[in-house]
Write a protein that binds this DNA or RNA. Structure first.
Length: 349
DNA sequence: AATAATATCAACCGCCGGGTC
DNA sequence: TGACCCGGCGGTTGATATTAT
Protein backbone atom coordinates (compact mmCIF):
# COMPACT_ATOMS: atom_id res chain seq x y z
CA UNK A 1 0.00 0.00 0.00
CA UNK A 2 1.43 3.28 -1.02
CA UNK A 3 1.78 5.83 1.70
CA UNK A 4 1.18 9.35 0.57
CA UNK A 5 3.64 12.02 1.39
CA UNK A 6 0.86 14.33 2.47
CA UNK A 7 -0.25 11.85 5.08
CA UNK A 8 3.25 11.29 6.29
CA UNK A 9 3.94 14.95 6.48
CA UNK A 10 0.72 15.86 8.22
CA UNK A 11 1.18 17.09 11.74
CA UNK A 12 4.69 18.42 11.24
CA UNK A 13 5.23 21.71 12.93
CA UNK A 14 7.60 24.49 12.17
CA UNK A 15 10.26 25.62 14.56
CA UNK A 16 11.03 29.05 15.85
CA UNK A 17 13.31 31.26 13.87
CA UNK A 18 13.20 29.24 10.67
CA UNK A 19 11.90 30.26 7.30
CA UNK A 20 8.93 28.11 6.54
CA UNK A 21 6.88 27.58 3.51
CA UNK A 22 3.18 27.36 3.92
CA UNK A 23 0.39 26.90 1.44
CA UNK A 24 2.59 27.13 -1.56
CA UNK A 25 5.04 25.17 -3.63
CA UNK A 26 6.32 21.77 -2.59
CA UNK A 27 3.28 19.93 -3.81
CA UNK A 28 4.44 16.84 -1.98
CA UNK A 29 4.40 18.70 1.30
CA UNK A 30 1.50 21.05 0.82
CA UNK A 31 0.15 20.32 4.27
CA UNK A 32 3.48 20.71 5.95
CA UNK A 33 5.48 23.64 7.14
CA UNK A 34 8.89 23.14 5.70
CA UNK A 35 12.07 25.06 6.10
CA UNK A 36 13.70 26.49 3.03
CA UNK A 37 17.03 27.96 2.20
CA UNK A 38 20.51 26.93 3.20
CA UNK A 39 20.98 23.89 5.32
CA UNK A 40 22.44 24.25 8.79
CA UNK A 41 25.22 21.94 10.02
CA UNK A 42 22.74 20.42 12.45
CA UNK A 43 20.35 19.56 9.65
CA UNK A 44 23.17 18.09 7.63
CA UNK A 45 24.18 15.97 10.57
CA UNK A 46 20.65 14.68 11.05
CA UNK A 47 20.31 13.79 7.41
CA UNK A 48 23.68 12.09 7.18
CA UNK A 49 23.06 10.14 10.35
CA UNK A 50 19.71 8.95 9.13
CA UNK A 51 20.82 7.94 5.67
CA UNK A 52 24.03 6.25 6.75
CA UNK A 53 22.04 4.29 9.32
CA UNK A 54 18.84 3.48 7.47
CA UNK A 55 19.40 4.46 3.88
CA UNK A 56 17.14 6.98 2.28
CA UNK A 57 14.36 4.60 1.28
CA UNK A 58 11.41 6.71 0.26
CA UNK A 59 12.62 10.27 0.16
CA UNK A 60 9.25 11.63 1.10
CA UNK A 61 9.48 9.85 4.44
CA UNK A 62 13.05 10.89 5.17
CA UNK A 63 12.25 14.28 6.74
CA UNK A 64 10.00 12.76 9.35
CA UNK A 65 12.25 9.82 10.10
CA UNK A 66 15.33 12.02 10.26
CA UNK A 67 13.64 14.69 12.35
CA UNK A 68 13.95 17.35 9.72
CA UNK A 69 11.46 20.01 8.79
CA UNK A 70 12.27 19.87 5.14
CA UNK A 71 10.47 18.31 2.26
CA UNK A 72 11.69 15.03 0.85
CA UNK A 73 12.83 16.65 -2.32
CA UNK A 74 15.01 19.05 -0.44
CA UNK A 75 16.55 16.19 1.54
CA UNK A 76 17.23 14.25 -1.60
CA UNK A 77 18.84 17.23 -3.27
CA UNK A 78 20.99 18.02 -0.25
CA UNK A 79 22.20 14.46 -0.05
CA UNK A 80 22.90 14.05 -3.74
CA UNK A 81 24.53 17.41 -4.30
CA UNK A 82 26.39 17.94 -1.08
CA UNK A 83 26.39 15.25 1.58
CA UNK A 84 27.01 12.11 -0.43
CA UNK A 85 30.34 10.66 0.71
CA UNK A 86 31.58 9.85 -2.79
CA UNK A 87 31.45 13.42 -3.99
CA UNK A 88 34.58 14.95 -5.37
CA UNK A 89 35.00 18.46 -4.13
CA UNK A 90 37.06 21.28 -5.47
CA UNK A 91 37.68 22.82 -8.84
CA UNK A 92 37.29 20.90 -12.04
CA UNK A 93 40.44 19.52 -13.60
CA UNK A 94 41.37 20.19 -17.20
CA UNK A 95 40.50 16.62 -18.03
CA UNK A 96 37.07 17.01 -16.50
CA UNK A 97 36.61 20.25 -18.36
CA UNK A 98 37.44 18.57 -21.64
CA UNK A 99 35.10 15.75 -20.88
CA UNK A 100 32.26 18.14 -20.19
CA UNK A 101 32.83 19.97 -23.46
CA UNK A 102 33.13 16.76 -25.42
CA UNK A 103 30.06 15.12 -23.97
CA UNK A 104 28.04 18.31 -24.09
CA UNK A 105 28.75 18.55 -27.77
CA UNK A 106 27.04 15.22 -28.17
CA UNK A 107 24.28 15.37 -25.61
CA UNK A 108 23.54 19.03 -25.15
CA UNK A 109 22.26 20.23 -21.80
CA UNK A 110 21.69 16.80 -20.41
CA UNK A 111 23.58 17.47 -17.26
CA UNK A 112 22.73 14.27 -15.48
CA UNK A 113 24.07 12.26 -18.41
CA UNK A 114 27.16 14.39 -18.63
CA UNK A 115 27.78 14.04 -14.91
CA UNK A 116 27.81 10.27 -15.28
CA UNK A 117 31.05 10.66 -17.17
CA UNK A 118 32.56 12.54 -14.25
CA UNK A 119 32.76 10.36 -11.15
CA UNK A 120 32.06 12.30 -8.01
CA UNK A 121 30.50 15.23 -9.77
CA UNK A 122 26.82 16.07 -9.70
CA UNK A 123 24.64 17.29 -12.49
CA UNK A 124 24.11 20.52 -10.60
CA UNK A 125 27.84 21.04 -10.26
CA UNK A 126 28.44 20.35 -13.93
CA UNK A 127 25.62 22.65 -14.92
CA UNK A 128 26.95 25.46 -12.75
CA UNK A 129 30.46 24.99 -14.05
CA UNK A 130 29.21 25.06 -17.60
CA UNK A 131 27.19 28.20 -17.12
CA UNK A 132 29.81 30.08 -15.18
CA UNK A 133 33.02 29.00 -16.87
CA UNK A 134 32.92 26.82 -19.95
CA UNK A 135 30.17 28.70 -21.72
CA UNK A 136 32.16 31.90 -21.51
CA UNK A 137 35.32 30.24 -22.73
CA UNK A 138 33.57 28.86 -25.76
CA UNK A 139 32.06 32.21 -26.59
CA UNK A 140 35.44 33.85 -26.14
CA UNK A 141 36.76 31.45 -28.73
CA UNK A 142 34.00 32.30 -31.13
CA UNK A 143 32.01 29.16 -30.59
CA UNK A 144 28.34 28.87 -29.97
CA UNK A 145 28.06 27.07 -26.62
CA UNK A 146 24.80 25.48 -27.71
CA UNK A 147 25.91 24.02 -31.00
CA UNK A 148 29.69 24.13 -30.61
CA UNK A 149 29.81 25.60 -34.06
CA UNK A 150 31.38 28.83 -35.07
CA UNK A 151 29.46 31.91 -34.23
CA UNK A 152 28.78 34.11 -37.19
CA UNK A 153 30.78 37.36 -37.17
CA UNK A 154 27.60 39.14 -36.12
CA UNK A 155 26.96 36.73 -33.30
CA UNK A 156 30.54 36.91 -32.25
CA UNK A 157 30.47 40.66 -32.21
CA UNK A 158 27.33 40.60 -30.22
CA UNK A 159 28.37 38.06 -27.68
CA UNK A 160 32.00 38.88 -27.35
CA UNK A 161 34.51 41.39 -28.54
CA UNK A 162 37.23 38.81 -28.79
CA UNK A 163 38.62 38.64 -32.29
CA UNK A 164 39.65 35.03 -32.20
CA UNK A 165 36.49 33.92 -33.91
CA UNK A 166 37.02 36.02 -36.98
CA UNK A 167 40.61 34.93 -37.11
CA UNK A 168 39.54 31.36 -36.95
CA UNK A 169 36.98 31.84 -39.68
CA UNK A 170 39.72 33.07 -41.92
CA UNK A 171 41.86 30.10 -41.17
CA UNK A 172 39.03 27.72 -41.68
CA UNK A 173 38.34 29.08 -45.08
CA UNK A 174 41.42 27.72 -46.69
CA UNK A 175 41.37 24.36 -45.11
CA UNK A 176 40.96 21.69 -47.73
CA UNK A 177 38.24 19.28 -46.76
CA UNK A 178 36.67 16.32 -48.35
CA UNK A 179 32.95 16.01 -48.72
CA UNK A 180 30.45 13.78 -50.31
CA UNK A 181 27.20 14.53 -51.99
CA UNK A 182 24.32 12.27 -51.31
CA UNK A 183 22.70 12.39 -54.72
CA UNK A 184 20.27 9.63 -54.07
CA UNK A 185 18.16 11.01 -51.31
CA UNK A 186 15.78 13.88 -51.24
CA UNK A 187 15.06 13.32 -47.63
CA UNK A 188 15.12 16.57 -45.78
CA UNK A 189 13.59 15.40 -42.59
CA UNK A 190 14.83 17.39 -39.70
CA UNK A 191 15.97 15.31 -36.84
CA UNK A 192 16.51 16.23 -33.28
CA UNK A 193 20.23 16.15 -32.55
CA UNK A 194 19.54 14.35 -29.33
CA UNK A 195 17.68 11.71 -31.22
CA UNK A 196 20.44 11.42 -33.73
CA UNK A 197 22.89 11.11 -30.90
CA UNK A 198 21.43 7.82 -29.85
CA UNK A 199 21.00 6.46 -33.30
CA UNK A 200 23.54 4.29 -34.93
CA UNK A 201 24.16 6.28 -38.05
CA UNK A 202 25.63 4.05 -40.66
CA UNK A 203 28.89 5.12 -42.13
CA UNK A 204 29.98 4.46 -45.63
CA UNK A 205 33.66 3.90 -46.06
CA UNK A 206 35.58 4.89 -49.13
CA UNK A 207 39.26 4.27 -49.58
CA UNK A 208 40.81 7.01 -51.61
CA UNK A 209 44.30 5.63 -51.48
CA UNK A 210 46.44 3.41 -49.31
CA UNK A 211 46.76 5.84 -46.49
CA UNK A 212 43.54 7.75 -46.49
CA UNK A 213 40.11 6.36 -45.93
CA UNK A 214 37.06 8.52 -45.80
CA UNK A 215 33.90 7.82 -43.92
CA UNK A 216 30.57 9.24 -44.79
CA UNK A 217 27.69 9.68 -42.44
CA UNK A 218 25.02 8.29 -44.64
CA UNK A 219 22.16 9.54 -42.61
CA UNK A 220 21.04 12.45 -44.75
CA UNK A 221 19.89 14.32 -41.69
CA UNK A 222 23.33 15.31 -40.75
CA UNK A 223 22.29 18.68 -39.56
CA UNK A 224 23.88 17.81 -36.34
CA UNK A 225 27.37 17.66 -37.71
CA UNK A 226 27.56 21.22 -38.75
CA UNK A 227 24.66 22.72 -36.94
CA UNK A 228 22.52 23.27 -40.00
CA UNK A 229 18.96 22.19 -39.71
CA UNK A 230 18.81 20.15 -42.85
CA UNK A 231 21.36 19.22 -45.40
CA UNK A 232 21.44 16.80 -48.23
CA UNK A 233 25.10 16.21 -48.06
CA UNK A 234 27.13 15.02 -45.24
CA UNK A 235 30.50 15.92 -43.99
CA UNK A 236 33.28 13.56 -44.75
CA UNK A 237 36.22 13.02 -42.55
CA UNK A 238 39.57 11.62 -43.37
CA UNK A 239 41.15 8.90 -41.35
CA UNK A 240 44.23 6.88 -41.59
CA UNK A 241 43.45 3.35 -42.52
CA UNK A 242 43.93 0.93 -39.70
CA UNK A 243 42.45 -2.28 -38.54
CA UNK A 244 41.55 -1.75 -34.95
CA UNK A 245 40.26 0.77 -32.52
CA UNK A 246 43.81 1.57 -31.52
CA UNK A 247 44.77 5.16 -31.59
CA UNK A 248 46.19 6.38 -34.82
CA UNK A 249 46.93 9.66 -36.41
CA UNK A 250 46.25 11.17 -39.74
CA UNK A 251 49.18 11.29 -42.03
CA UNK A 252 49.85 13.48 -44.99
CA UNK A 253 46.57 15.25 -44.68
CA UNK A 254 45.82 18.85 -45.30
CA UNK A 255 43.27 18.64 -42.59
CA UNK A 256 43.95 19.43 -39.02
CA UNK A 257 43.71 16.35 -36.89
CA UNK A 258 40.24 15.07 -36.29
CA UNK A 259 39.29 14.01 -32.82
CA UNK A 260 37.27 11.09 -31.73
CA UNK A 261 36.30 9.34 -28.62
CA UNK A 262 34.03 6.64 -27.39
CA UNK A 263 30.92 7.63 -25.59
CA UNK A 264 29.01 4.91 -23.90
CA UNK A 265 28.39 1.56 -25.43
CA UNK A 266 26.62 2.47 -28.57
CA UNK A 267 28.09 5.58 -29.90
CA UNK A 268 31.22 7.33 -30.70
CA UNK A 269 31.85 10.97 -31.13
CA UNK A 270 34.23 12.84 -33.32
CA UNK A 271 34.89 16.09 -35.02
CA UNK A 272 36.07 17.32 -38.33
CA UNK A 273 36.39 20.59 -40.09
CA UNK A 274 33.86 21.97 -42.42
CA UNK A 275 34.12 24.20 -45.43
CA UNK A 276 33.25 27.83 -45.41
CA UNK A 277 31.21 28.13 -48.54
CA UNK A 278 27.51 28.35 -48.91
CA UNK A 279 25.89 24.96 -48.95
CA UNK A 280 23.67 25.96 -51.82
CA UNK A 281 26.75 26.41 -53.98
CA UNK A 282 28.39 23.24 -52.87
CA UNK A 283 28.58 21.36 -56.15
CA UNK A 284 30.06 24.34 -57.96
CA UNK A 285 32.69 25.01 -55.37
CA UNK A 286 34.15 21.60 -54.95
CA UNK A 287 36.69 19.80 -56.98
CA UNK A 288 35.52 16.32 -57.76
CA UNK A 289 37.91 13.75 -56.42
CA UNK A 290 36.18 10.58 -57.38
CA UNK A 291 32.86 9.01 -58.05
CA UNK A 292 31.79 5.89 -56.34
CA UNK A 293 28.38 4.67 -57.32
CA UNK A 294 25.86 7.19 -56.19
CA UNK A 295 28.36 9.09 -54.16
CA UNK A 296 30.44 11.85 -55.52
CA UNK A 297 33.51 12.74 -53.54
CA UNK A 298 34.64 16.34 -53.60
CA UNK A 299 37.54 18.26 -52.20
CA UNK A 300 37.15 21.89 -51.29
CA UNK A 301 39.06 24.32 -53.42
CA UNK A 302 41.34 26.41 -51.27
CA UNK A 303 40.83 29.49 -53.37
CA UNK A 304 37.09 29.24 -53.49
CA UNK A 305 34.65 31.80 -52.34
CA UNK A 306 37.17 34.51 -51.83
CA UNK A 307 38.97 32.65 -49.12
CA UNK A 308 42.48 33.91 -48.85
CA UNK A 309 45.46 32.77 -46.93
CA UNK A 310 45.60 34.64 -43.70
CA UNK A 311 48.14 32.72 -41.73
CA UNK A 312 49.64 35.78 -40.19
CA UNK A 313 46.47 36.38 -38.34
CA UNK A 314 47.09 33.17 -36.47
CA UNK A 315 50.59 33.61 -35.33
CA UNK A 316 50.79 32.40 -31.82
CA UNK A 317 47.60 30.43 -32.01
CA UNK A 318 47.67 26.72 -31.62
CA UNK A 319 45.30 24.88 -33.88
CA UNK A 320 44.38 22.69 -31.01
CA UNK A 321 42.46 25.64 -29.71
CA UNK A 322 39.77 24.85 -32.19
CA UNK A 323 39.86 21.14 -32.36
CA UNK A 324 36.53 20.64 -30.77
CA UNK A 325 34.72 22.56 -33.45
CA UNK A 326 32.43 20.26 -35.28
CA UNK A 327 31.41 16.88 -34.24
CA UNK A 328 29.53 13.88 -35.38
CA UNK A 329 28.51 10.53 -34.10
CA UNK A 330 29.76 7.41 -35.66
CA UNK A 331 29.03 3.90 -34.55
CA UNK A 332 31.71 1.97 -32.76
CA UNK A 333 33.71 -0.56 -34.58
CA UNK A 334 35.29 1.61 -37.19
CA UNK A 335 38.84 2.62 -37.08
CA UNK A 336 39.78 6.19 -36.92
CA UNK A 337 41.77 8.80 -35.17
CA UNK A 338 41.13 8.20 -31.51
CA UNK A 339 43.71 10.21 -29.69
CA UNK A 340 41.43 13.03 -28.82
CA UNK A 341 42.08 12.92 -25.15
CA UNK A 342 45.75 13.45 -25.75
CA UNK A 343 45.05 16.85 -27.16
CA UNK A 344 44.84 19.65 -24.71
CA UNK A 345 42.05 22.07 -25.25
CA UNK A 346 44.15 25.13 -24.96
CA UNK A 347 41.79 27.77 -23.78
CA UNK A 348 44.30 30.52 -23.97
CA UNK A 349 45.26 31.65 -27.40
C1' DA B 1 37.36 52.11 2.75
C1' DA B 2 32.98 52.09 0.52
C1' DT B 3 30.18 50.87 -3.09
C1' DA B 4 28.92 48.66 -7.37
C1' DA B 5 29.38 45.07 -10.52
C1' DT B 6 30.22 40.46 -11.45
C1' DA B 7 30.93 35.55 -10.48
C1' DT B 8 29.81 31.47 -8.11
C1' DC B 9 26.94 27.90 -6.57
C1' DA B 10 23.39 25.93 -3.40
C1' DA B 11 18.77 25.47 -3.55
C1' DC B 12 14.22 25.88 -5.47
C1' DC B 13 10.57 25.39 -9.06
C1' DG B 14 8.04 23.18 -12.36
C1' DC B 15 7.72 19.63 -15.48
C1' DC B 16 7.95 14.83 -16.96
C1' DG B 17 7.99 9.76 -17.06
C1' DG B 18 7.25 5.59 -14.65
C1' DG B 19 4.85 3.01 -11.27
C1' DT B 20 0.82 2.02 -8.51
C1' DC B 21 -3.90 1.91 -7.44
C1' DT C 1 -8.03 4.46 -18.16
C1' DG C 2 -7.18 8.12 -15.36
C1' DA C 3 -5.59 10.00 -11.01
C1' DC C 4 -2.05 10.22 -7.99
C1' DC C 5 2.64 9.81 -6.12
C1' DC C 6 7.50 9.69 -6.48
C1' DG C 7 12.05 10.33 -8.23
C1' DG C 8 14.62 12.64 -11.43
C1' DC C 9 15.85 16.33 -14.42
C1' DG C 10 16.90 21.01 -16.40
C1' DG C 11 16.12 25.90 -15.90
C1' DT C 12 16.24 29.54 -12.87
C1' DT C 13 16.78 32.21 -8.70
C1' DG C 14 18.96 34.43 -5.04
C1' DA C 15 22.42 34.64 -1.38
C1' DT C 16 27.13 35.05 -0.80
C1' DA C 17 31.85 35.81 -2.28
C1' DT C 18 34.98 38.13 -5.08
C1' DT C 19 36.66 41.74 -7.97
C1' DA C 20 36.54 46.31 -9.94
C1' DT C 21 35.90 51.20 -9.50
Amino acid sequence: MMTTCANECAGEEGGIGLVFLEDMGHHCCSKQKVKRGLWSPEEDEKLVRHITTHGHGCWSSVPKLAGLQRCGKSCRLRWINYLRPDLKRGTFTEQEERTIVDVHRILGNRWAQIAKHLPGRTDNEVKNFWNSVIKKKLIAQGLDPNTHNLLSPHQTKTKNNNTNASKFNSRHQHTGSVFTMDTSSGNKEIIDPKTLAIQNSYINQTTLNESITTFEFQNPNLAWIDGAQSTQYSTMMEFSSCSSMESTSISNSSLPPSRFGILGENCMWGNAYEPCFDRADLPQQLEKVSTDGQEQIYRANNELNGCQQTDNAFDGCNFNDFEFMDSALVPPGICCHVNSMDHELAWDC
